[in-house]
Amino acid sequence: MHFTSMAASASILRTEHLTRAVDGRRIVDDISIEVPRGDVLAIVGPSGAGKSSFLRLLNRLDEPTGGTSYVDGRDYREIPPRVLRRRLGMVMQTPFLFPGTVAENIRFGPRQHGETLDDEAIALLLEQVALPGFATRNVANLSGGEAQRVAFARCLANSPEVLLLDEPTSALDDVAKREIEALVREIVEARRLTCLIVTHDSARPRAWRNA
């Protein structure tokens, strides 16, 4: 597994010897990195290298068995998990949309901390992910690429500072892959987001850069 950085400024995320062992096997082994704010970092490696497990540790979906991570200099174990997960938004390989409409999915995150997104905010988010007019669509009727865009909009609705993207285009065809990559790059740049992208394809970081 290796890391490819694409820009730079002051550090928002830092890991120190981050490790996770399961049944005596180290699936994330002593990772120490520093991610400057606004940086886009590609994590490249073959399947089974522990890339997704590393992102899961950053989002604290799993607990490290060694080392820790710092968000803006603060040990992430001191940050309430729900607050941490809102700040470090994660888009998974599979969208895992909740049954219902696109709008209900996008409203889910903000609703968890008592915020209700109005129709205008939903429409704006859907425009950003190139799905205008999709608010009332049932998620059961979306294509793979559309579902992944909704998952992306759902994550952005929480206004995260860091985006953790776990092979978000791996299940899509080449056209959809290129469209999503271009879209993500556009949004990351417009919002000045810090972004960690996991991929097993060593050509993807270049594709992301050129999207």
Binding site: R82, R85, R86, M92, T94, F98, F108, G109, Q112, C155
Partner: peptide, 16 residues
């Protein structure tokens, strides 16, 4: 599991 963890990753309370 995927849906539960997707909801957790969005900052949802476990019971939700």
């Amino acid at each position: 599991v995927g849906h539960v963890e997707a909801a957790l990753a969005l900052g949802a309370a476990p019971e939700e």
